[in-house]
Design a protein around this nucleic acid. Structure first.
Lengths: 212, 212
DNA sequence: TAGATTGTTAATCGATTAACAATC
DNA sequence: TAGATTGTTAATCGATTAACAATC
């Protein structure tokens, strides 16, 4: 269950970072940690750490602190549910797709890559991260049969726009989007995580050119 | 010059998006646009659009709206300065590095790729996006000679940690970081733009598993 | 018990939105 | 001029930080 009536996006975005740090702490053999220690490591405040955890009911012991393994497990449960990995397809098998496919497949992330699609016939039958690359025109049939829940888009802008409506109709509700286009504006029924490389690079440029 | 005493990060992060939309509008032949039209396209409010532009002095005409080309040029000047492209090196020439190198090289982003580095001898002498791949141990000499301003890291976590101090000492002050580690905590003198694929994927997972 | 540290409420800060006067 | 739309100030909203009572 959990208390989280409606957890804000900033809190959600911090969960993976907590999880990473706790994983490191655990590997280092640390057993308990205080909110202020954790905050210091993460570059934030003890208040924020405690506020964040209390969105989910609070995982600590007053006067003592947080048990690293308990905290890690609780956040892990939030991020990965019961451990059931989300069936996922990748669309676009270029260099970016190839790099991204290895992120998806790493079981630590909670996803299971079940299909890779492209329009380039040279790639058909080859494998990517252990999954065969299939022609994009077979996507509809594939979805009807295997019911992927998440699509990862590593395609050009126009292809993403063209694809989005199809994805919705195929029952996909989550998109990890690397295209140059924000799908969530047009498709509010999709949960979209945008990784906008162009925007990211341009805003770095602004900050470098306009320092102090 | 410009008015921007201190523009907030949320505003900066929106600039590339404005720029993209204005580029599209311009290509479509649209000559003027109102804050409310632009807001509607971008999924925000007219108030925010006007507030954002007024961080930089305001680019519109009261009663009329904004001239698309003027606005685009002004935002372009903010993002790309006088057009001088930032000399940039890429470290890590794997699949991710390869995909990322094409983003850097696209002249629309304001960067100029001048060197690619890796530790894999099989890659030395080959090219990536038209730039030769060099051994990482020559990085120091290269920086002394060519003075890159920006480093793009497509390397594993530990390598990024090991590299960060060197980069600072070589005079690099901007990092586009794809590694599993946030350098800005330890090196406040660096302007870092993190693209954290693992975190991004995990927080998508949270949102999918905890809908409504 | 005294000290430490959480859980939780209250205060602050900053970003977004609304309102409206200025002006094209 | 009247209508439209910006520039800018004021109000609201939400997120972060501070404070402190609860409790281990």
């Amino acid at each position: 269950m959990g208390v989280q009536n409606k957890v804000s996006l900033p809190v959600i975005k911090r969960l993976p970072k907590y999880y990473r740090y706790l994983t490191n702490l655990s590997a280092d053999g640390k057993e308990k940690i205080s909110s202020s220690e954790l905050a210091h490591m993460m570059g934030t405040t003890a208040s924020q750490v405690r506020q964040d955890f209390n969105c989910f009911g609070g995982f600590g012991q007053q006067g003592i602190g947080y048990k690293v393994d308990v905290l890690r497990a609780e956040i892990g449960k939030l991020l990965f549910g019961d451990g059931e990995r989300l069936p996922t397809i990748l669309i676009g098998a270029g260099h970016l797709g190839s790099a991204v496919s290895s992120f998806i497949s790493r079981d630590t992330n909670g996803y299971r890559l079940i299909g890779v699609f492209d329009i380039n016939p040279d790639l058909f039958g080859k494998e990517m991260s252990g999954v065969p690359i299939l022609p994009l025109h077979t996507l509809s049939d594939f979805c009807a049969q295997h019911h992927p829940e998440v699509a990862v888009l590593c395609v050009p802008r126009q292809s993403a726009i063209d694809l989005a409506g199809d994805l919705v109709s195929y029952g996909i509700h989550g998109v990890w989007n690397f295209s140059h286009y924000d799908l969530s504006v047009e498709y509010p029924e999709l949960t979209v995580e945008n990784v906008h490389l162009g925007d990211s690079l341009m805003s770095l440029g602004y900050r470098l050119r306009n320092k102090e």
